[in-house]
Design a protein around this nucleic acid. Sequence first.
DNA 1: CTTAATGCAAAAGGTTTGCAATGCA
DNA 2: TGCATTGCAAACCTTTTGCATTAAG
Lengths: 154, 154
Amino acid sequence: MSTPHEHPANTSDDLAARLREQGLRLTPQRQLILRAIEELRHATPDEVLAHVRGQVSSVNASTVYRTLEVLEELGLVRHTHLSDRAPTYHSTMEHEHVHAVCRTCQAVRSYDPAVVQPVVDALAADGFVVDVGHLAIFGTCADCSAAAAVPPAT
Amino acid sequence: MSTPHEHPANTSDDLAARLREQGLRLTPQRQLILRAIEELRHATPDEVLAHVRGQVSSVNASTVYRTLEVLEELGLVRHTHLSDRAPTYHSTMEHEHVHAVCRTCQAVRSYDPAVVQPVVDALAADGFVVDVGHLAIFGTCADCSAAAAVPPAT
DNA sequence: CTTAATGCAAAAGGTTTGCAATGCA
DNA sequence: TGCATTGCAAACCTTTTGCATTAAG
């Protein structure tokens, strides 16, 4: 392992390079899927599929799953569980962030990893290395908390 | 970890009471399933099913799902996602705790909610109310971190 | 007696897999 | 050309749902 912490200028090159390193091949599907993740920011396999289908070539669902797996192994994408259903993928090119999901309205907000630093430190004292990018914090957002506390006025 | 305090007077009474409040009924299946969760500490619907099947009466899978849902609504159990697969349920009779899951060895450790208090406070400033009991922190435990850093000696 | 709860089977949602065809390298 | 990759279809696994039957209150 050894990814320098520079901000890669361009993922396409990264993709080609990392694939080659592993003796894997660069295919249009893989490029499309990676691009889809970057454009959608947060997307489930299904959303990726819908997105790439809107494009030129058609891609099969199993290819999406297999590709997402490869991309994650290459360290180009990551996933978290933002709902009880399908996982959500995002590009590692974005700044690392933690997700706060409102269980009432489903809204997802991103926070700076700094907010969880105390937790990371606390568990580090235990030898546990937290995977911040995979963290999903569930709860109730401001709007929904308010709605729940005060009976609807309308 | 063991429960420092004695097991709650008894959940059966709670179950009966809360069900009645809602006009719902107390059934042997519901009692069995709640008991299973308490005995197993952390269990997926499947594990609950296997557990209750070992008991006298046989319970159907759909009953397990429906019951888990009811029990959660009654506030007697909670669930988190400790793996990419099935959700894990636990009794609310236990002290609230956050889960730290090692993605390498799958080990689950419970921590005092205090470790995430800073995060809770940080998001609270934003009006976001964190559901601590639902929190699952993924990462690598001490043992697995060591194994990854140092090439296996044996 | 009423109707909530269960069991059963079928359906649905999401993901995986075997295999022949395809196409990077 | 050789082997990784894809498409397709079927298999899988977990969860949900409709409905007739059972049983709690």
